[in-house]
Design a protein around this nucleic acid. Sequence first.
DNA 1: GTATATCATACTTAGCAAGTATGTTATTCC
DNA 2: GGAATAACATACTTGCTAAGTATGATATAC
Lengths: 128, 128
Amino acid sequence: MIKVSKQVDYAVQLLRALSKLKEGEFLSLRKFSKESTISFLFLQRIARSLKAAKIIDASRGIHGGYYFVLDPKKINMKQIVDAVDGNFGITACLRGQPCEREKTCTNKDIFHKMNIQVEQMFLETSII
Amino acid sequence: MIKVSKQVDYAVQLLRALSKLKEGEFLSLRKFSKESTISFLFLQRIARSLKAAKIIDASRGIHGGYYFVLDPKKINMKQIVDAVDGNFGITACLRGQPCEREKTCTNKDIFHKMNIQVEQMFLETSII
DNA sequence: GTATATCATACTTAGCAAGTATGTTATTCC
DNA sequence: GGAATAACATACTTGCTAAGTATGATATAC
């Protein structure tokens, strides 16, 4: 199984909604949660990760919400994975996690090569 | 998080060990389990999946074991994922699983395109 | 000052990949 | 024939962690 997390999925949906805003407009998570049916609290965590990565920014208060900082077209999928999941890698080993079978493993080379290719593809994929 | 399952990881390790056998030789899972430190029972399930996919075959009895049917060089990563995980897709939706947010989802196109690229790369990656 | 937005941290749940248990059937060798 | 050891088959349990929840603080607009 090779798969993308729901956090990344939801992050992209949110960013695509934000990319449709006009200059000076905000989108609140409460509103987006209703439109998308994605859990409001789960969206909060994702949005803050994206803000920490300086992809979006927020305005507080009654008419506040999130908005894009940079040009949405220049944001790629690798940036989203980095921001939301904190790391990138198709195996635990490539994500820097300890591996109990490190000594006997014969797959380091093949997964390393594949990881480079997946990473490159993510880099080249604009979220818009 | 984009990742490959341990089943696929272990399947590739097993296949690489089998690819080193000479004509007419077998490798038992008991032996490979000791070498690799991978659970014997878990390996059994994986090996039977690979056999069902006609990638390897088995000989029973006291000196039996598994062996490659085809040329190991012609086996690619997509075949392994199909054999071991039963399907291929970077999202639940692309794996044919029902999605509760199908109607509001705005990511079908982007993940579909990415899936094609990942799939292509897996097809082009030989396990050797 | 009230309403509503984000900010921050901690906790719970649930799905399923990963691993385990147990018994059956086939083949080799003595 | 029978012991040993291989794969075959199915069902069950565990444990990780992604996913979702709870609660309260802080900021801004009107």
